[in-house]
Amino acid sequence: MPPLALPYPVYLDHIRTESRRFREALATCDPDARVPACPDWTAADLLWHLAGVQWFWARTARTRPAPPSEDLLAPERPATYDGLLAAFDEHSASLVAELEAAGPDAEAWHWAPVQTVGTSYRRQAHEALIHRLDAEQTAGSVTPLDPALAADGVLEVVDVMYGGDAPGWGRFEPSDHLVRIDLADPDAAIWVRPGTLSGTDPDTGEVHDGPHLQVVDEPDAAASAVVAGAAADLDAWLWNRRDAAGITVTGDPAAYDAFRAAVSQPLD
């Protein structure tokens, strides 16, 4: 696996920076403006979404290692846009404070396999980054994504959001395809094997039978297909926040189709 992960203090700095830029983009935005990547949302909905996410993970770090209760009540949504901005300020500051106080090695519940506060350092840095992009697209003024954070974002989205090891209740059936994702900045490659995940989640009763990915170490075999581009372009594309302009695909179309099937599910 490529050494793309960032030091935990850097993730925390990105949560601060991306959250601030998110707020700045929305502060003077029309509250009813539609979010291009999530057209059911307005700017006000987007603001409250990230406020709620940051509230939840601040609370999870504070009450670690207990999982959230099924009857957990979220804060009431403010009635005004100024109230939403104030609530976001409160919950965003609380998230940074709770993560910093706990430290990345502390045990804490998470839906992802690694049950530490550090998982939230990383996940919330990418959550803030992608929603900052949403905010800027909504406001009509998009600025660049940090290349190092975006490169780790590509790894996280294929290894955690769209893929990863099969849970205990599931079975991963790998295909014969190997897909290499080439990042131009930094110069790195991520190898993934598309396949199918099947099984029934005993906690939810949900039946899974669909495309999935596993990140693999660089193999001795050649790639069936190669997807290449700048890290920022690939990260935004994989999150369905932009088109594929500037991204090149070479190799076996069937391998690419298997990859795309695994990364085409909607993500908020």
Rank of each mutant, 00 (worst) to 15 (best):
A150V: 09
T116Q: 11
D209L: 07
V249P: 11
A151M: 07
A261P: 03
S264K: 07
G251Q: 01
A101W: 09
W237R: 10
N240K: 15
R59C: 05
V35P: 13
V157T: 14
D187W: 01
G251E: 04
H110Y: 07
E98W: 00
S264M: 01
P67G: 06
H14M: 10
L4W: 06
D146Q: 03
Q137T: 04
T116P: 01
F22S: 09
V10C: 07
A225E: 00
W41Y: 14
H212S: 06
P194V: 05
A225P: 10
A125G: 04
A27K: 12
H126T: 08
V215F: 06
H126Q: 11
F172K: 06
G83A: 07
W41T: 08
W109R: 09
G210H: 06
G199I: 11
G52S: 14
A255Q: 11
M161C: 03
A228N: 05
L129S: 15
V35H: 03
G164V: 04
G140K: 01
A245V: 14
I190F: 03
V160S: 13
A27Y: 01
R180E: 13
E98P: 07
P65R: 03
L213F: 06
L133V: 15
Q115D: 03
V249C: 00
R59F: 12
M1C: 05
Y121T: 00
E18R: 13
L99S: 03
H91D: 12
F22D: 12
E76S: 13
L85T: 08
V179N: 03
C38D: 00
D134Q: 03
A43Q: 12
A86T: 14
V158W: 02
N240E: 11
A43D: 10
A236R: 13
A245H: 14
H110W: 02
R20G: 13
G229V: 06
F22N: 10
D203H: 11
A231F: 01
A244R: 15
L4A: 05
F56Y: 13
A37R: 03
A33F: 00
P75Y: 12
Q137G: 05
R260H: 14
R132C: 06
P186F: 04
A231W: 00
G199V: 04
V249S: 05
A150P: 01
G170A: 15
D134F: 02
E218Q: 07
F56C: 06
S69E: 14
D45M: 04
A166I: 05
A231V: 00
V249M: 01
L145D: 12
F22P: 05
A43E: 09
L178W: 02
S69P: 07
A139K: 04
G205H: 03
S69R: 15
G52R: 15
P266D: 10
A258T: 01
P266C: 12
D134K: 12
P253Q: 08
D152E: 15
D257M: 03
V192G: 02
P186V: 09
P68D: 09
